[in-house]
């Protein structure tokens, strides 16, 4: 092995496995962007691990030539936590679906975020159970007709970003499968963040929930239906950059910028370090009343779980010295028998 680090290419991360997603599935685009940014992140394939649950999305690890575990439904966060606690040197990605992480794995998802394990979790949100052929998911919208809801969904959907805010995730972002530039840069930001980075990706399941996110995907509409969050910048959206978001008391309102009555300075400025109250407010912005924010909602730094856990081990060794088994066995009350 030479000491000069070879320059990594997307090909270095391509596995020899045939991809089995349906043609036209949004997952392809996410895979492509991931393979594009992995070399840029610069962690070699042998130091990278992809861990997934079960679902169409969770097939992902087979398609990247890194280490990987295709685990069981909903449990990838727990598998990844165990790996990170023993191998903090590795770069770990959790790949999951909306059902995988919010339904069966909801518990692990919350605990992963609140513990702030240093890894990246990418949730492919297609608002449907793809792999099991089209039942509704916890993010399906009310009234959605699916295979298991012929008269429409009656559950109230979970808002993944709101949930992440509630769990005090330190990095929260949203992107869209077809918005490849945005997606690539969001993945890179996630990788750069130390702590749990949560990225929700709007993903089109063209077989069971086609067009669920067309408003956010179509170039024609997306500038009006989404708003790109940029740290330190005023919140402006619309094809003509003619509308903005302003804080009014404890709620957000849309203001028109055309007539010049409202100045840029009056608008809400995005702050990735803001209190979670503000981030929560942003997470509630939903179509059709509001544009849906994409980009990084939150990026703050706190101690990671493995730093804290391994820190205690280190501290204990420093204070008490490396444990000695024989000493331990002979500690306390002992007695001798014969011979």
């Amino acid at each position: 092995m030479s000491t000069v680090l070879p320059v990594l290419k997307a090909d270095d991360f391509t596995s020899d496995q045939d991809i089995r997603w349906c043609p036209g599935c949004g997952d392809y685009s996410i895979l492509a962007q991931m393979k594009k940014v992995l070399p840029e992140i610069g962690v070699p394939p042998e130091k990278t691990v992809f861990i997934s649950g079960i679902g169409c999305s969770s097939r992902f690890p087979y398609y990247v030539n890194t280490y990987g575990i295709h685990s069981i439904h909903g449990r990838a966060p727990a598998v990844a936590t165990g790996l990170k606690l023993t191998r903090p040197d590795l770069s770990v990605w959790v790949i999951t679906g909306d059902g995988d992480s919010l339904s069966i794995g909801g518990n692990h998802f919350i605990h992963l975020l609140r513990r702030n394990v240093d890894l990246n979790i990418v949730m492919f949100n297609n608002r449907i159970y793809g792999l099991t052929k089209g039942q509704y998911s916890p993010t399906s919208v009310e009234g959605q007709i699916t295979k298991s809801t012929p008269m429409g969904v009656v559950d109230h959907p979970i808002n993944p970003i709101s949930l992440a805010v509630g769990a005090e995730a330190t990095f929260i972002a949203r992107s869209v499968d077809s918005n490849i530039k945005h997606l690539a840069s969001t993945l890179k930001r996630a990788a750069a963040h130390k702590g749990t980075s949560f990225v929700e990706v709007y993903q089109n399941c063209n077989v069971f929930n086609d067009g669920a996110f067309s408003y956010a995907q179509d170039k024609a509409t997306r500038d009006d239906t989404t708003i790109e969050l940029e740290h330190g910048k005023p919140m402006i959206f619309g094809k003509n950059k003619d509308r903005g978001l302003r804080l009014n008391g404890l709620s957000v309102e849309i203001v028109n910028l055309e007539d010049g009555k409202v100045k840029e300075d009056d608008l809400l400025f995005h702050d990735e370090k803001a209190t979670s109250t503000l981030v929560y407010m942003l997470s509630r912005l939903r179509r059709p009343d509001f544009p849906e924010p994409i980009g990084v909602f939150r990026d703050v730094i706190t101690e990671t779980f493995e730093e804290a856990v391994l820190g205690q081990i280190k501290e204990s060794i420093e204070q008490r010295g490396r444990g000695n088994l024989q000493k331990l066995f002979n500690s306390g009350e002992t007695w001798k028998v014969g011979a």
Binding site: I51, R75, G82, R87
Partner: peptide, 12 residues
């Protein structure tokens, strides 16, 4: 989660 984290640790 306990069982799954053990799997992760073993893989590591």
């Amino acid at each position: 989660a306990a069982m799954c984290s053990a799997i992760g640790a073993s893989y590591g």
